[in-house]
Amino acid sequence: MKKLLIMCGTGIATSTVVTGKVRDWLKDNNLEDKVQLFQSKITDELNRLDDYDIVVSTTLVPDNVRDKVIDGVPLLTGFGTEEMYGKILELINS
């Protein structure tokens, strides 16, 4: 079971939308059993990002963790969603 964290600045607005979309996507692709979803605010998580296998953020993260984090903004604007899901899928299967 992979742990997938979705975070934003407050943990209540954009991460809610992204979590809803990712949940639907997991369901449509029969991946629900492989992934456990977490939703939170960035300030609560920065020190423990290594606890998660996959991290999606709708907000800017510090440079030292940038490589670990997938940009979740495509799910808000509709541009670049396929590429974003591709990155998540790769990590689910890794």
Partner: peptide
């Protein structure tokens, strides 16, 4: 919003006063 630093010229604003995330998924979507 998001990873890069970039300006956006905004013409429409939704100012959100929100409480529990579990109640507002439908509104935000």
């Amino acid at each position: 919003m998001g990873m890069g630093v970039q300006d956006v010229e905004v013409k429409l604003v939704f100012m959100l006063a929100l409480q529990k995330p579990e109640n507002q998924l439908e509104v935000l979507q």
